[in-house]
């Protein structure tokens, strides 16, 4: 044999811990900066979205019921896996037009940021929760609980740091997510999915769909079993009246442009539960 056979990666969806192709059979192509084809990526349909939500819903309670310590450990493990695949990510970002220095910095920032959020897993409830004074024979507590299933429109730029910054604060508190990614950033998102699949993150906690965000947005907004959506990554041209449908099940809609670690982003996906408990002897 004279030459090696090139083995190109197939970019597929990440649903319930597995990497299926789209049920629709559709794909879209992603080219590098030179215009050369990098990959044909699966284009998710509304049915893929439905399956992803189903998986996220099934995984939500078990994920939230794990101890905060255990969730933190799993997120640290993700950081370790990201660390070991640094060069792969640098190459990937370079192929979609990020220069070498920025790519390296983006990966390093992403890992640091992930670990920052991982550290919050067993600390945010002490900071955000409270014991409230009431005028009666009651203990009164406020405790944060995860919102549930969160739909995330992945930011296209920067593709790695952008998604990491949205994903980590959502899942650290026990939410499960369905990410919709499009264009060049799809490649980064799917590769992050591959890291998650090998990092003890239970199946269904993170589901990643690639395709057309404007296509899938109405289904995400209208789905009654999605409790919150993060549309911070949405493109400027998107018709925002689409979001109104989110009122149908009083979905939490988050749109927050922050470029640093932020506890606010974590608390966006929390619901505060206040409990009255009679004082007795």
């Amino acid at each position: 044999m004279t030459g090696k056979i090139p083995i190109a990666k197939t970019y597929k969806l990440f649903i319930d811990g597995a990497f299926p192709r789209s049920e629709s059979g559709r794909t879209f192509s992603v080219n590098d900066t030179e215009g050369e084809l990098i990959a044909n990526v699966s284009q998710a349909s509304r049915k893929d979205f439905r399956e992803a939500v189903r998986a996220a819903r099934a995984a939500q309670l078990p994920w939230a019921s794990r101890t905060a310590y255990n969730r933190g450990q799993i997120l640290y493990r993700v950081a370790e896996m990201l660390e070991s695949r640094k060069t792969e990510f640098v190459e990937l970002l370079k192929s979609i037009g990020v220069n070498s220095r920025s790519a390296t910095r983006e990966i390093e920032d992403s890992i640091q940021r992930w670990v920052w959020y991982a550290g919050w897993s067993d600390k945010y409830s002490q900071i955000l929760g409270s014991v409230n004074p009431v005028s009666g024979p009651y203990f009164n507590f406020t405790v944060p609980e995860p919102t549930g299933v969160v739909g995330i429109i992945a930011p296209t730029e920067p593709s790695m740091l952008g998604l990491i910054s949205r994903l980590a604060p959502a899942i650290v508190s026990g939410n499960t997510v369905v990410v919709v990614s499009e264009g060049h950033s799809s490649l980064t998102s799917v590769t992050i999915g591959e890291v998650l699949a090998t990092s003890d993150v239970p199946a269904g906690v993170v589901n990643i769909l690639t395709g057309d965000q404007t296509d899938l947005l109405p289904w995400m907004v209208g789905h009654l079993d999605v409790n919150a959506i993060d549309i911070s990554g949405i493109s400027q041209e998107t018709d925002l009246t689409l979001i109104e449908e989110a009122a149908s099940n009083v979905k939490r809609v988050v749109s927050r442009q922050v470029n640093e670690e932020s506890l606010e982003l974590l608390s966006d996906f929390l619901e505060m539960k206040t409990v009255w408990h009679p004082i007795g002897r």
């Binding site: 439905r50 819903r57 789905h223 009654l224 079993d225």
Partner: peptide, 9 residues
């Protein structure tokens, strides 16, 4: 309804 429902309903 045209949109997906969930087990809460």
């Amino acid at each position: 309804s045209g949109s997906y429902s969930g087990p809460d309903y």
